[in-house]
Structure formats: structure tokens, C-alpha cells
Design a protein around this nucleic acid. Structure first.
Lengths: 250, 250
DNA sequence: CGTATAGTTGATTAGTATCAACGCTAGTGG
DNA sequence: CCACTAGCGTTGATACTAATCAACTATACG
């Protein structure tokens, strides 16, 4: 997995920020797009703004590694991030793909519990844990919001356990495609040509399969006219009903 | 999965409470053992006490089902509970085994996201979601505590994804046994004769295996003198180093 | 004591992994 | 501008782990 090493966040910020900044992030006073600020008042957002700092990172950039000492919490402004855990012999399990608006960097006992790596070019906002703790005390709604985000992640993790433990390769892939499709809908994009920013290797490590099995299963679904593969990185959902049946395991 | 149907909690409470009540739970004013009350002051615990209500349930009792309308949050005073999700064709994934001091019943959009069933005879405390919400507003530390519990569960769920997606049957079982062993240590019990209150079917559905594979793997580990099986429901960890190597996948 | 349930063991199958080769695409340098 | 190369993705042949099907044993229960 030819991954760039973790670099100094600050230098990266200077190096890559210019060309990747989006309009909403150019000026530091608009942070509503940050997920856990969504419900806050203007006043509260202002407070948050003072402690945040953002950067744009290239694809395949390691933000932090499992076991690293925790310093910051990150929020994705734009782009895609993958979180994963490794076994000593290199076997990898991707815990989740995160998109714009999602938060990561939670940890136990001062160490990150997974590695975080960008999939595409990505813009991140980050806060120190210390400052976030202070803010949580000052803004009770923030605490509540972070709790419900943790619950949301927990529910997703449990759904993924069902997938990993009990679904077949076809069912896993169908579930995966429908999830991405649903997410696109939520962001106001069309549900059907699903964008796959991640590689086959990433998909395999997310679904508990091998690259080859993922590839073969794509081919099978295409042969069955359930999906179409118009271009690399894009999947057409031709028969959503069939996909749903597969995903639910009926 | 010959499961008793969900019964009325209140009638069960009356029916089973007498013989199952533990000394610590007999009087309603000691609730320190409830996990999310651990850090609270005496005053705060008193407040909680007024809204709680407890019951003792027999083994294999369904507390609630996935999809049921949410009413309560439960805390285990004594016993073991399993949480699971089902696919329409009956395939089952156990999300977790919970023990004394743990909380369950979190939900999204008013519906439980998993089924909860007792493994052994179990004592539960329960609170209505409504009352808990009120208390969370009144006791900020409670909110913080619930957040860190959710994070703990999330981290455990991510660890389980690695197990389900990337570990072999032997590695899965070794990991499982070591977890139970570690938990016993934390409660002050010896680490070695590990108690297995759950059936082979439950273990299989937790590890993403079949009953037969679990049984065969137990036999293999016994043959290798890694574990001993002195009596049904108990496992002796004869070679913890070997188990740890297996669990870490080295 | 007989029956039901849980657990073990064996034989065979099936699904996915592994090993290997090949094609496609994109980026590089002449 | 085009050949060259590297990396990603696909496809094929084979191996292997765990599932399935089946029989049998041990344990708990009435």
C-alpha cells in the first residue's frame, strides 16, 4: 500500500492549501459545514472558529497512525478519508470511509485507535483535544451533539459487523453500493451513478474480502445487469431492487 | 434459537425478582454499581434512584427486539446479555455480550437497532429515555459519562470489525477467550478458568463462524495444549502466550 | 428411564483466497 | 508525439478454510 509517510501537518497546510481550498473554507469564519457545529448558534460557532485550523492534504496522505499520541480531532470539509486497523502481518481492516462533514480522531488513553489516511485530496479542519474539551464544558449542546455522533457511528459499526460476519461477497458489495448511493442522495446528488473514489484494495479491506473477489463480484453483478461499469471509479445502479434484495440477504 | 417471547417487564419483575435479587440491589438506594453512575455524587445518585426501576429476568429472555419502539435504557446489575441483529433468512450476528455494569438500549429514530436477550438469569435496572434525557440536562457529568461509554463501545466495535473481517477461526476464538479472561481480571476474578456462560451457537454467531467450526477449533486448541476444557462452560488457558500470538495474528 | 437439547466428530461441498498471468490506463521521458 | 513503464484492475487455475450435511455422544430434564 504505497503510502506517503505522515508529514508535518503545518508544512502540508502551507504546501497544499493554496490550490485545494474551497470557497466555503477560504475565509475562516464559515464553519457551519462542520458536522458537530450544525446545531449551534452564531455566537457558539464564533467561539469554535477561534480554536480551529484547517489544511488541505493530497490523496493517500496519512493523517495519523494507530497508536500515535492523540493531539487533535479532525473534521472533513471536503474529500474522503479512510480509517483502518492493521494486524502485525499486514492484514488490514478498513473501519470506515468518511466524507465531508464527518469527524474522526477519537481515541482511548491518549492514543489513536486507528490509522487515518486520505483517499482523495481532502480538506480537514482540526481542533486540539484540550480546546475541544474546554468548549464541551462551555457549550452543553456540543456535548450532546458529539454523543449523538458517537451513537450514529456505533450503529453503523454494528451494521458493519453484520455485514462482515454474515453476508456473502455479493451481499457485501450490494450493501456497500447502496450505502454510497444513499449517501449521495443525502447530499443532494443523484442516487445512481455512484462514485467510487477508493481503490479495489480499499473496498476489499472494507468488506473483508480480497481484491480479486471484489473484482470478480463486480463483473458478476455487471453480467447480471444489476450494475453497469461505465468508467473507472463509477458504478451505475441498473437494478436497485435486485441490489436491495441482495443487501438484505433475501 | 428457542427463545422465550418478550413478556411484560413488570409481570416478569414480580415473577422473578424474589429469588434473583442480589444484596446490593435489594434496597433501591444503592445504585453505584450502575456503570454510568459511577462518577456521580451522592446527591446525584439519589436523583437517579428516583427514576429507576429494576427486575430480574430468567435466561434466554428477550428484553426487546430490533425495530421495537424505544422506551427504556437498561443497565445490567448482574448477569449476561447478548445483543444481536438478524437477516431476514435467519442469519444472526451477535453484536456483543454485555456483563454486569454495562448499559444497553441506545437507538436511532425511536427504534432499537438490535435485539437484546439474556444469556443467563439477569438483573436489570431500567430508565425511561424521557427521564434519562431530563437527567442528562441536569447532570452534565452524566452526559460526559454517556459519551465516553459510547466511545468505549465504538472502539470495541472497531476491534470486532478487524476480527470478523480479517482473522481466522483460531485467531477469532483465541481473541474471544483472552477478552473474557481480561474482563474477569478487571472484576477481580482469576484470569484463567474462563467462564463461558453462552452456548456454542452464541459464540459462533459472535465470531462469524458456525457451531461446528467453533467446536472443532476448541478441540484443536485443546489438542495443542493451548487450552483445557475441564467442564462445560469453562475453559482453562494453559498457554496464554500462544493464545496471545494467535489473537494478534503473528 | 426416556427424551430433548447441546456439543462433538466425520465426510463432503462450496465459497473465497491464493498464485499467476494478462490488459488497461495514466504518467514519464525521450 | 509516442513508446515505455508502473500501478491498478481483470481473469484464470488451483488450493484451502470454513460451511454444510449427517451421524453420533453427552448432558440436562421431566
Amino acid at each position: 500500500m504505497g503510502t506517503a509517510p505522515t508529514l508535518d501537518f503545518e508544512s502540508l497546510r502551507r504546501e497544499h492549501t493554496a490550490d485545494l481550498r474551497s470557497p466555503t473554507c477560504r475565509n475562516c469564519d464559515i464553519v457551519r459545514e462542520i458536522a458537530f457545529c450544525a446545531d449551534l448558534t452564531h455566537e457558539e460557532i464564533k467561539r469554535l472558529t477561534t480554536v480551529r485550523c484547517h489544511a488541505s492534504l493530497p490523496a493517500n496522505f496519512t493523517v495519523f497512525r494507530e497508536g500515535d499520541e492523540v493531539d487533535h480531532v479532525y473534521s472533513i470539509s471536503a474529500g474522503t478519508v479512510k480509517l483502518y486497523k492493521l494486524l502485525p502481518d499486514g492484514r488490514r481492516q478498513i473501519i470506515g470511509f468518511l466524507f465531508s462533514g464527518e469527524l474522526f480522531g477519537l481515541a482511548v488513553e491518549g492514543a489513536y485507535v486507528y490509522t487515518a489516511e486520505t483517499v482523495t485530496a481532502t480538506q480537514l479542519c482540526r481542533f486540539t483535544h484540550r480546546k475541544l474539551d474546554t468548549l464541551r464544558d462551555e457549550i452543553p449542546r456540543l456535548e450532546r451533539r458529539m454523543f449523538s455522533m458517537a451513537v450514529k457511528d456505533l450503529v453503523a459499526a454494528q451494521e458493519q459487523m453484520l455485514l462482515l460476519g454474515r453476508k456473502t461477497a455479493r451481499e457485501k458489495l450490494a450493501t456497500f453500493l447502496l450505502r454510497l448511493s444513499r449517501r449521495q442522495e443525502q447530499v443532494g446528488l443523484p442516487s445512481s451513478p455512484v462514485a467510487l473514489p477508493m481503490s479495489r484494495a480499499d473496498i476489499a479491506d472494507y468488506l473483508g474480502l480480497t481484491i480479486e473477489t471484489v473484482s470478480r463480484t463486480f463483473t458478476q453483478l455487471k453480467r447480471d445487469a444489476t450494475i453497469g461499469l461505465p468508467a473507472s471509479g463509477h458504478v451505475l445502479l441498473q437494478d436497485e431492487a435486485a441490489l436491495r434484495e441482495l443487501a438484505e440477504g433475501t
